[in-house]
Amino acid sequence: MSPIISERAGAGAGADCAVSTHGLTKRYDRDVALDSVDLRVPDCAVYILLGANGAGKSTALKLLMNLEPASGGTARVFGLDAAQHGPEVRAQTGYVPERHDAGYTWMTCGQLLRHASVYYPAWDHAYAARLSDALELKLERKLGRLSKGDTRRVQLTLALAHRPPLLLLDEPTDGLDPVVRKRVLALLAEHLADRPTTVLITTHHVHEVESLADHIGVLRAGRLVAQMARDELQRTVQRYRIELPDGWEAPRDLVVAASRSSRATREVQWTVVGDEREVTDRLTTAGARVRDVSSLPLEEAALALLPVETSR
């Protein structure tokens, strides 16, 4: 599939982007983790970065934080080159890493929060206390004795409490039970309503953040294969209910992400990537009868852009 990079809403030169990368590449020996990625995250947008395991999502976030050196290209956060201004970039960023590791195992949660507060002059102590309450942090418990979910709560509190203008959340709800997941998403929504914040989230659970999402990017084997606004994605990836004549052959370059057929009728349902009018025209020209075109939920539309083995 050729990349579907929207020219609209932040997909341009990155002038109004909080985060932009240009040809960002990361290699680990011979393995290419990121291959010339041009990410555009508009200011104050919630951008969901999707991809199968190993697609390069976490690597992209690490490069934005300047935690690892890029093999090529640039990454900019609020106009700051991440490679040259790592500390300044990290000061603007609330980061939830992929790993469930909140730092010093011998510290208590309360001590870690206090420790972090010194490093962020913008730390909001009242808000940190509110987050601790809402996420039911066990402030007296040592970090080394926390469960995976408890550690995630601490990481989320650390990321949000200094009210950063940018949140980089790598699987933020991973390890949380459904009740806490819901609470975290509510807190995130509240956070976004309170203060203009740009959010870049990687997740395998798009439905959880569906209500917040503005933009979607899809990484496949280190390459950014799609990047567009949410509504554009839902217009680009749609479900077509088609009636097919006998011996019908689909146009060769039609991008069919998923299909379902009915034996009782001659109908098939195809999830097709492309402009609706153009797809309809081509199907009709090829002899098929398009009965209905419907939008997909965001998660389904986004997953249609992932490799087949992931999207099914």
Binding site: F78, E88, A91, Q92, P121, P165
Partner: peptide, 9 residues
């Protein structure tokens, strides 16, 4: 961006 940048410690 219109974000107010935070200082470093």
């Amino acid at each position: 961006s219109h974000a107010t940048l935070h200082p470093t410690p």
